[in-house]
């Protein structure tokens, strides 16, 4: 075993272990780590916001792109109006910027969502059901499962009788689907823990066991 001499590694290990103490119970160490991450994260956000957004995406184009750049004053004014949200008396001014962003965002999304969420999904689900392994064990299941799922999410009719039966099949498909997602994610989550443990063993304690 060979302790690290790098103070920063010690700091990272201290915070790592502080967070793990939460598994036992809430304590001042965890609260300290929580407040540090909130503060450091906010400071990081401010600095990156200034350099990557304000300077790179606003100030530089404004001052170097001539007339086209100067037009950016208009959204800048709208952005400043957005900030008035904080002050209740002037909060109504922020609606202009919000209206612009959210209105445009909604209009932008409308046809694209029809293409991606509706038409493409329908195309991918219109599968041939012929007498073969693929036709019966794959395509048929997918078509029936999708239909049953859609019926489950149908809110205009109560889940009774035949309709209720199909909706029940739908929820079964949903549950199996969720179970698959759950199992799939377990391995990924375990690898995160392995990553932290390896950091402590290798970088901090200098133990190269694996």
């Amino acid at each position: 075993m060979h302790w690290s001499t790098d103070i920063w590694v010690w700091i990272a290990v201290f915070f790592t272990l502080s967070v793990y103490t939460f598994l036992w119970k809430d304590n001042p160490l965890y609260k300290f780590a929580e407040s540090v991450t909130v503060g450091i994260g906010m400071g990081f956000g401010v600095v990156q916001w200034w350099n990557l957004s304000v300077v790179d995406r606003f100030w530089v184009p404004l001052t170097t792109r001539g007339t086209i750049g100067l037009v950016l004053i208009i959204p800048a004014i709208m952005g400043l109006m957005m900030v008035t949200r904080i002050v209740p008396r002037f909060a109504w001014m922020s609606r202009y910027a919000l209206a612009f962003s959210i209105g445009a965002g909604s209009g932008f999304m409308l046809p694209r969502a029809i293409q991606a969420s509706i038409l493409q999904q329908l195309y991918a689900t219109m599968l041939p059901i012929n007498i073969s392994w693929t036709g019966l064990m794959v395509n048929l299941f997918i078509v029936v499962g999708t239909l049953a799922g859609l019926i489950y999410f149908f809110f205009s009719k109560e889940h009774k009788g035949v309709f209720g039966g199909i909706a029940n099949i739908g929820i079964w498909f949903l549950m199996v689907g969720f179970g698959a997602t759950f199992g799939y994610t377990v391995m990924a989550r375990l690898s995160l823990l392995i990553g932290r443990v390896l950091f402590i063993l290798r970088d901090f304690l200098g133990m190269h066991l694996f």
């Binding site: 509706i118 329908l122 195309y123 239909l147 859609l150």
Partner: peptide, 26 residues
């Protein structure tokens, strides 16, 4: 409407009427 299209589309695909499903390729 989506459910009806899905059923019709699957039947069309089974019958080899790809012109119907291809219209949704979008």
């Amino acid at each position: 409407i989506e459910m009806i299209l899905l059923v019709v589309g699957s039947l069309a695909a089974t019958a080899g009427m790809w012109w119907f499903t291809n219209a949704f390729r979008a």
